[in-house]
Computed example of a mutant assay.
Amino acid sequence: MPNTPPATPPSTSPPSSSGASDTSAGAAPRNEYTVDELARVSDTTVRNVRAYQDRGLLAPPEKRGRVGVYNDAHVSRLKLINHLLSRGYTLANIQDLIKAVDEGHDLRSILGLETAIGGRWSREHPKKYSLVELLQMFGDKASPSALAKAVDLGLLEREGLSFVSGSPTALAAGATLAKEGIPLADLLDAVGVARPHFSAIAHALVDLVVRQLDRYDPDALPPPADVPALVDAIWRVRPLAMVLVESEMNRALEEASGDYLGDRVAAIMEKKLARSASQPKRPKK
Rank of each mutant, 00 (worst) to 15 (best):
Q136F: 06
A194C: 01
G258D: 07
H203T: 09
L253C: 10
H83S: 15
L221F: 09
N93S: 15
L253P: 00
P222A: 14
I234N: 03
L273C: 11
A204H: 10
P239Q: 15
W121E: 12
T12F: 03
V67G: 11
E157S: 02
Y89P: 02
S130I: 04
E133H: 04
T90Y: 07
L230V: 08
P168T: 12
E157A: 08
A202P: 00
I94C: 10
A220E: 11
P15A: 00
D36R: 12
V193E: 13
L187G: 11
H125G: 12
Y260F: 15
P196F: 01
Y33P: 02
K179F: 01
P222Q: 10
V193F: 07
M249W: 05
P14F: 04
A172K: 12
T45S: 14
P6M: 05
A142H: 00
Y33K: 07
D217R: 04
R238D: 10
S278Q: 10
R64A: 15
L240C: 11
V132C: 07
M249Q: 12
A73I: 08
A266E: 08
Q212A: 14
I201H: 13
P283V: 09
L153H: 10
L80T: 13
L153A: 11
Q279F: 05
G118L: 09
D36N: 14
K149I: 10
F163L: 15
G119C: 03
Q53L: 06
T8Y: 06
L208K: 14
P60K: 14
K281E: 07
Q279R: 09
W121C: 08
K128E: 15
R64T: 13
T169N: 06
T115G: 02
M137C: 08
A51W: 00
D140N: 08
P29S: 08
R215Y: 01
A185R: 04
D54L: 09
S86R: 13
T34D: 13
R40G: 06
Q53H: 05
Y260P: 02
R215W: 00
K272I: 09
M1W: 01
H203M: 07
S162P: 00
T23C: 06
L184G: 11
L78N: 07
G166L: 01
H125V: 12
G166E: 01
P10S: 12
Y89L: 15
P222V: 11
F163S: 05
E62S: 14
G181F: 00
P196T: 05
E246A: 13
S247F: 08
P224N: 15
P126W: 05
A146Q: 07
G192L: 04
L273T: 06
G26T: 05
S42Y: 00
M242K: 14
R123V: 06
L155F: 02
A39G: 01
D219Q: 05
A92C: 08
V191I: 07
S109N: 14
A175T: 03
A172N: 04
K79P: 00
L230A: 07
N3T: 09
V227Q: 03
L205I: 02
R77N: 05
H74V: 04
E62F: 02
L208S: 12
A116G: 02
D22M: 04
A59I: 02
I234A: 06
E37Y: 00
Y129E: 10
D263R: 13
Y129G: 13
G160F: 02
